[in-house]
Design a protein around this nucleic acid. Structure first.
Lengths: 195, 195
DNA sequence: CCAGGAATTCTAGCAGCGCTAGCACAACTG
DNA sequence: CAGTTGTGCTAGCGCTGCTAGAATTCCTGG
């Protein structure tokens, strides 16, 4: 019994070690530097050990993505709590979202850009992911107009944030005017829709 | 003289052949199927020939992206011309944009998602790219509020469209409600901004 | 028409990728 | 302490983008 639990604990610890190493490597040098060989060296085990914990590289990235979702959810919540009115709250959450994406680009990519081994738009999506979306929704819902579906409106606002972040990060949009674009986006969502 | 021009013509033809083959392969089987070996086989030359035309795979993708920009610009213009009022025009252009992205996902990825060997937010950006942006801008500008910078507003609306497209394509958003999300986005941009 | 030189294309290979079969060793059990 | 179980390693497969250098083709001048 005790031996069994010790082994399980050790396995869990090593699994966490893998995820942490992957995340740190990705944040330090980008996901293209995260190879299974490099990762194996980092945790001081051989390559095949990785595959006894995860189905493949995508599954490791998915684990990192889930961690990222939890952190983002927490940051969105903090920003939301600190803000006062409906509009200020949405602005604060939007700001917190894009700030997170810019501060932790590798994490953000795993969550929302790269192909990853995770269910998304289904009830089986990871809890952390649903929490992050719920935070966004809590900020969007109060500014929804009469007929607007709050879920769809949240998805649409989210898309706006995501577009800003990804176009900027891939060099399609200049970094400089980010704050002003974000204001424009939030401003148009807090206005009354005309149809 | 004649020999010289013939050679140049043949080179240009072969270059076009490469770009076309890359594009068709990408559209048929996705960019991950476009390997330099596969591409070389397709054009019935050996691999190194590719590198006598392009600096690398990214440069080939960039050439495909430029083609895509030209086509998108044309489609946006067509949609714009067919629409009547300011709001209808913006809606039509947004619709044309997302329709293009969904109909030609590989082309869209080369243009706006994948890392590619192109200058973007600078005056040296390819003409086709600038034309596509100009089409978007022509549709956005008429609905800009007093103080809004039309360029920034266009970038922001573009980000919204891009976010919708990429989140949907990567499975983060369900396909079903796309039209309604697009309406929400366009609706909020054609409304008066409240600040 | 043919030899020499220049340009072009190909063969072969490098270093690295994700992933895995099968062996060797370590750890636990009776 | 012997035997069995299971864990981790070595080695290697088939692929990637890319390139050095050999081989071949083509054009030019005699």
């Amino acid at each position: 019994m005790s031996i069994q639990t010790r082994k399980e604990r050790e396995r869990a610890e090593r699994e966490a070690l893998i995820v942490t190493a992957a995340r740190e490597l990705a944040e330090a040098e980008g996901w293209e530097a995260v190879t299974t060989r490099r990762l194996a060296a980092e945790i001081e085990y051989s390559q095949p050990v990785l595959y006894s914990h995860f189905k493949g590289k995508e599954a490791i990235m998915a684990a990192v993505a889930v961690q990222g979702c939890a952190e983002m959810a927490a940051e969105l919540r903090t920003a939301s709590r600190a803000a006062k009115g409906k509009r200020e709250t949405l602005a604060a959450v939007g700001e917190a979202y894009t700030a997170f994406a810019r501060r932790r680009p590798a994490l953000y990519d795993a969550m929302f850009t790269l192909r990853v081994d995770l269910p998304f738009a289904t009830p089986e999506a990871p809890a952390a992911l649903q929490e992050a979306f719920a935070e966004l929704r809590a900020a969007v819902e109060p500014i929804a107009a009469e007929g607007d579906d709050p879920g769809l409106l949240t998805e649409t606002y989210w898309a706006g944030l995501h577009g800003l972040v990804t176009l900027m990060r891939s060099g399609r949009l200049p970094e400089g005017a980010h704050e002003r674009r974000l204001e424009l986006l939030t401003g148009h969502f807090t206005a009354e829709a005309s149809r």
